[in-house]
Design a protein around this nucleic acid. Sequence first.
DNA 1: GAGATTTTTTAGTCTTATCTAAAATCCATG
DNA 2: CATGGATTTTAGATAAGACTAAAAAATCTC
Lengths: 234, 234
Amino acid sequence: MVSEIERPAPEQSHTRAVEDYLKAICVLQRETGSVQTSALAQRLSRTPASVTNMVKSLAEQGLVEHVPYYGVRLTLAGERAALRVIRRHRLIELYLIRHLGYSWDRVHAEAERLEHAASDELVERISAVLGHPEIDPHGSPIPGPEGEWQERTYPALSELMPGQTGVVREVSDADPERLRYLADLGLYPSTPVTVLGRAPFEGPLRVLVRGEEKLVGSALAAMVRVELTHEQAR
Amino acid sequence: MVSEIERPAPEQSHTRAVEDYLKAICVLQRETGSVQTSALAQRLSRTPASVTNMVKSLAEQGLVEHVPYYGVRLTLAGERAALRVIRRHRLIELYLIRHLGYSWDRVHAEAERLEHAASDELVERISAVLGHPEIDPHGSPIPGPEGEWQERTYPALSELMPGQTGVVREVSDADPERLRYLADLGLYPSTPVTVLGRAPFEGPLRVLVRGEEKLVGSALAAMVRVELTHEQAR
DNA sequence: GAGATTTTTTAGTCTTATCTAAAATCCATG
DNA sequence: CATGGATTTTAGATAAGACTAAAAAATCTC
């Protein structure tokens, strides 16, 4: 029998591909509970057939539960692994901005690669240097080292009704061009916003941002999550 | 015809395996001119058969010239790619020590993974933050961004004769335990040393380090490169 | 509820990078 | 210069992860 006194750190490392799938499933299942093959395929830029293959392999490794033709969802082990990758990604993003002069819109691609190469030790050192932050540069919460994870979902700006007021809390981080444009508009975390009006049929929104009226397309507005000012939260 | 005015940065990325082979060939060929399959296999912990396969592929990509049964050597393109990886590795090592509290002996493994994930932009930012250093933590020169490369080879401590004096300039970076021990002995770059005596048949050396006499096995002494004090360089 | 459409899965192929086992080549030495 | 030993290469297998094309299941529509 092996002594269990000094259990070495898990640091179980999955392949890059596995980590990418787990991360994508984790993010997608927050919104929909279970994740469809096609949604995953689109997010990862893979064909649905490739996704089915990988999902089968993930299921064999005990990282997801897969109900054929229905969808996939993370097991506890899968979620832990996914949160570990997400933690890495978000800490690295913040670090690149704070310490290496990266701009808001460019960090995502870099973090996307580094998250698979950084050791636990490096990530914890980065966290320490940053003062153990809990929010990343785009407003997303950073899971704790043991996977503590504060669920919180704000409505998208695109869902607000005219007259509603709130504060931007989170912005989707994937697309540099869109992010740059959002920054131009002033739409980044902690900016107060008021919806003045919205055109029908997925038309653009008129939004009051720091005293100026801006027009925001609904696809763009869907990337921005807003905490409603409480009187209006009803 | 495509305009050549705004040529985008090359940033041609080879696979991780290719980068590892190029780096290994580059380091090995500095000593021997051309690199044997078996030497490469040993350094990379691969079988000779695997190395032959990869070498063939590298030759097809124009990164090496391969003379079957004789050896391999980098082409210009191969050397450029190799120096780029080595530059990354050494800058990352220095950065981890200076800015993230890593110890001398632990940086190698971390850099070994990060060097394949970091973009050119990240590497240049790191170089800038460090003040564009030219020497890494183990005393090895850091190639420039365009592959400028100062050849310099110092004799190994293990090759010195009793009575010879010099200054430690470079220490092989691969093995944490040995590195820790060398640090204990005081054998790191810029330490002056004098060889007091050496036992025959690859026996240990008696070395004077900062006023103290130390015994150093010849395998360990082979990891330490020394610049001879010039009167004795003859 | 039957056909049509969409979504998912299966089947088979490809690439990269590794391995083992066997064959080929080189080299040293008698 | 022939042969034994070391090294290298070839041949063939395997694994991960991607793809395309075709089959199967689910869902929508009338």
